[in-house]
Computed example of a mutant assay.
Amino acid sequence: TWFHTIFFSNQLWLLDPNTDFMICMLPETIFYKLVLACVVKVICFMALASVLAIYYMVKKAPIGFER
């Protein structure tokens, strides 16, 4: 709910399962899994990019990484 309180100034995002079809069609678990999958993918991408950047710096750096 903190996402909605930050980005929306009204209370229209609060849905009633008895009257609103959208909340029955898209329950909270779907959004939770979606956000979790996005976070995991971003972390994996950043880790891979960091490893590749460090490898490139060690391999191609003219100074500072003597063996």
Rank of each mutant, 00 (worst) to 15 (best):
T1P: 08
T1Y: 13
W2K: 11
W2D: 12
H4C: 00
H4N: 01
T5P: 00
I6E: 05
F8W: 03
F8S: 02
S9P: 00
N10W: 00
N10V: 00
N10C: 06
L12V: 02
L12P: 00
W13R: 00
W13H: 03
L14K: 02
L15H: 06
D16I: 01
D16M: 04
D16W: 01
D16N: 15
P17H: 05
P17D: 04
P17S: 07
P17R: 08
P17L: 06
N18R: 10
N18D: 08
T19A: 02
D20N: 15
D20L: 01
F21T: 13
M22H: 11
M22A: 10
M22G: 04
I23H: 03
I23L: 10
C24N: 14
C24T: 14
M25S: 12
M25G: 01
L26R: 08
P27E: 03
E28S: 09
E28T: 11
E28M: 06
T29Q: 13
I30V: 15
I30D: 07
I30N: 07
K33T: 10
K33V: 04
L34R: 05
V35E: 04
V35P: 00
V35W: 05
L36P: 02
L36W: 08
L36F: 07
C38W: 05
C38E: 11
C38N: 03
V39T: 08
V39D: 02
V40K: 08
V42C: 04
V42L: 14
C44P: 01
F45G: 15
F45V: 09
M46S: 14
A47R: 08
A47S: 12
L48A: 15
L48M: 12
L48Y: 14
L48P: 01
A49V: 06
A49G: 04
A49N: 05
S50H: 08
V51H: 03
L52W: 09
A53P: 05
A53S: 12
Y55E: 04
Y56R: 11
Y56V: 10
K59P: 01
K59C: 04
K59A: 08
P62M: 07
P62W: 07
P62F: 04
I63H: 15
I63N: 15
G64A: 03
E66H: 12
E66Q: 13
R67F: 11
